[in-house]
Each structure stands twice: as structure tokens, then as C-alpha cells.
Amino acid sequence: MDVFFQQIVNGLSLGGIYALIALGYTMVYGIIELINFAHGDVYTLGTFFSLAILTGLGVSGEMHGLPLVGVVLVTLIAAMLLCGLTGVLIERLAYRRLRNAPRLAPLITAIGMSFILENVMQLWHGPSPISFPEVIPNPAWALGGVEVSAKQIAVIGLAIVMMAALQLFIYKTKMGKAMRATAQDRDAAQLMGIDINTTIAVTFLIGSALAGAAGFVSGVYYGTTWFFNGFEAGLKAFTAAVLGGIGNVAGAMLGGFLIGLIEAIATQYIPGGAQWTNVVVFSVLVLVLIFRPSGLLGESLPEKV
């Protein structure tokens, strides 16, 4: 039984990172119906930015007390800001022109942007994995027979805090309202006097900033990064967003945690499970889409006419 609960903790902390990335996917999809393939790479870019900032601050190892809080906040916010701006830039350069083009066009552009970002990162830090300073001390606590580490709590906590903040933003602010209106009917929103371009840009800013936050925590959590990291994480996170119901913020979070849990549980209970995790995850995705196409929390919408 201890093993089961330990796997739940493992799954939740892995899922926390997926969830943070999935939030950005789901926001962008919700508003312009684009599978933003470059999003996974923006996440990796988040680890690269964080690393650059930490290096700039002269941080190379564990920190404690007030300096730790300061360094974490500065790095997190700066990485989020840089990733957010990157997202806005990508939208402006690559997607805006194609807003009214058939779906396939921006999708291909997104794949192209993903290649470009990967290449930029490879030129930046080379093709090999690079180490990321372990800023946060990592004590672990035993709860019963289950071990929970500080980093795991940080990942799960950050994901939940970010989602809550995003929910508040979307439902309590004017800009949030504009985003919901734009997602529902772009033309009508425009007629109502909403500045579509700004609204979409803000969506990209926030979504990409969340990917930046995910990048920072994953750097701290795993202690390493690599230019190609975003590919797999992006696919899984997108799966999470679809599983939860794309366009739905709480759904993305739920989907992220679920995918993490499915991976952990499949690894534990299927003989030779580690090699089947992807097959299980994507099979679950296919089944969910067949039997509940709108995802777990999404509203079922007929095809837009």
C-alpha cells in the first residue's frame, strides 16, 4: 500500500509540470483554436532562461533563508516574463497573419517555430544535456511509509497556485472577460469593442509565462535540461489538455495530474511497465476522445459552423 501512495506522490509531482505546460496549450487553443506546437519548446526555453538568470546572479548551489526566497522569486518572475514575451513575439510574427487561414496553416507554422526554437537552443548551449544548479534544499519527510520531498511539494504547489491565479484572472478581471468573449465568438467580441489583437497577445503572454514557470521548476526539480526536452513534454501536456477538455483551465490541470498518475501507476503495475507508459497514455487519450470527445471537464460542443 505504501508503494501505491508513493506512486501517487510521484505521479502528482510529474503531473504538476505537465499541468503547468497544459495550461498554456489550453488557453491558446481555447482562444484561437491552434495547437501551438512551439509551446513545449517555450517551456524548455524557460529552463534555459532560468539557467541564464541564475548564472547571472552567480548562483551555483544550494541556498537557504531569505536569499533563497529572493533568488527563487527573481528567477521565476524573470523566466516567466522572458517566456511570456517570447510567446507574444511568436504570435505576432508567425500566427497573427494566419488567423483567418484554414486550420492547417497556423499548425504547420507552429511546427516550424518549434524547429526554430529547438535549433536556437541547440546553438545556445550545445547538443548535450546541461546541468542546472540545485538551488532549493531538498529535505524529505516520511508520512507513514511514503516519502515526500520539498521539491515535490514545490512542483505540485506551484501548479495549483498558478491555476488558481489564472482562474481568478479569467473570471474576475476585465481582460479575462475579454478573453472568454473572444474564445466564444471572435467576431462578436470585436463588434462589442474588444481589442482582439491585444486580447490574443495577452493570452499568449500568460500561457507562455506559465510555460516559463514550468521550465524553472523542472530545472530545479530534475537538475538538468536539454534543448530537445520540450518535444516529449509538449506532447504529453497537450494530451493532458485534451484529456481535461481543451479550453478548460481546471481541465488542463486535472488532465496534467491524471497523465502523471497514469504514468506512475502504469509503471508500477504493468509488468515491464516503463516501456509501456507512452502506449498507455496515448491509448487512454484515444479512448477518452472516442467516448467523451469533449474531454473530462469540457462542454460538448457541436462542430463550429
Binding site: N10, A264, A274
Partner: peptide, 9 residues
């Protein structure tokens, strides 16, 4: 990149 589940097993 996450092998914790495998290692727990």
C-alpha cells in the same frame, strides 16, 4: 525524464 515511478517500483 522522470524515473521516480520506476525507481519506487
Amino acid at each position: 525524464t522522470d524515473y521516480k515511478a520506476l525507481l519506487t517500483k
